[in-house]
């Protein structure tokens, strides 16, 4: 999908870049309610009141209200950027320094061109030996991205990253502060819940249930058979909870009775001794 070169120092490694993932989300087309025809979006010129074809439309950069600067494709191709056809590596760092949770946008595989196999392999080995990842810049789809190059099995993976000013500040959120009191018992219970569900991450175990359900719905409609409903989970019984509470109350009652009995025992013993002494 993209051809260029990884560039660092005096080295240039010619590579092709492919998307590492594909979207399989459920998408719907909008239809006309009367005849069921799929609706189309039209590029409409409000001045001439006519449709404009894809190839006739030109790009415009909005500089003010209703004020645009026209930009041609050739002008974009000739932007004075080093990254239009290269992945320019700026530095190597530890992977843990990049907060992947918020920074990573997209994932792409890099494949070496025939002439770039050896330097590609060299870069792979160097990343493997140092345990570092490369941080660089690349221009994709009319904009420059920050990116990370890391090892992924036999390939080099490129992740596009958000620019730092694209990451929102946490100050906008009402997050709990240290003043919120957490009891040790509550924390123990939360830790226990986490440990009960602890497992090693195996992506194959997880499926997109919504997509499956929509697929079933479509198949059922195609074959005109009634849709199978997911069985409802059995309703919980409040009596189970009350049984636990009652058992706890009874245990507490037994303990209290035992404590009363043990308090009364020495008294009875003293009393009987006294009686014995009296007799």
């Amino acid at each position: 999908m993209w051809r260029g070169a990884i560039s660092f120092g005096m080295v240039a490694i010619p590579v092709r870049m492919y998307l590492a993932n594909e979207s399989k989300g459920v998408s719907f087309r909008l239809l006309c309610p009367r005849d069921g025809a799929p609706l189309r979006n039209k590029r409409w010129c409000p001045v001439e009141e006519c449709e404009v074809g894809w190839n006739d439309a030109v790009r415009g950069f909005e500089v003010g209200k209703d004020e645009y600067v026209r930009i041609e494709d050739e002008e974009l191709d000739n932007l004075p950027l080093d990254t239009t056809r290269t992945i320019e590596i700026l530095e190597f760092c530890d992977d843990s320094e990049i907060d992947a949770g918020v920074y990573v946008k997209g994932a792409y595989y890099l494949e070496p061109e025939a002439v770039g196999v050896k330097p590609y392999q060299l870069l792979r080995k160097a990343l493997e030996k140092t345990g570092k990842v490369a941080v660089g810049k690349v221009a994709l789809r009319d904009r420059e991205h920050l990116c990370r190059l890391a090892l992924h099995e036999r390939a080099i993976l490129l992740n596009t990253l958000h620019w730092p000013d694209e990451i929102r500040d946490l100050g906008q959120l009402a997050l709990p502060d240290a003043e919120v009191e957490v009891h040790a018992r509550e924390l123990d219970m939360a830790v226990m819940l986490v440990e009960n569900l602890a497992a090693s991450f195996d992506p194959a175990r997880h499926r997109d249930g919504y997509r499956d359900a929509v697929q079933s719905l479509v198949e059922a409609k195609l074959t005109d058979r009634p849709l199978e409903r997911a069985p409802s989970p059995p309703l919980a019984q409040i009596t189970d909870l009350m049984a636990v509470l009652k058992a706890s109350v009874e245990a507490s009652s037994r303990q209290r009775q035992a404590a009363l009995d043990s308090d009364a025992e020495p008294e009875r013993a003293t009393g009987s001794a006294r009686r014995r002494r009296a007799s």
Binding site: I238, M242, A243, V249, S252, S253
Partner: peptide, 20 residues
């Protein structure tokens, strides 16, 4: 099961509070 009659405890409020 959608209509349930929860149980109750006679007399022992403190122990039920400790359990609940």
């Amino acid at each position: 099961p959608r209509i349930q009659v929860p149980d109750w405890v006679v007399g022992e409020g403190e122990a039920l509070a400790d359990a609940a």
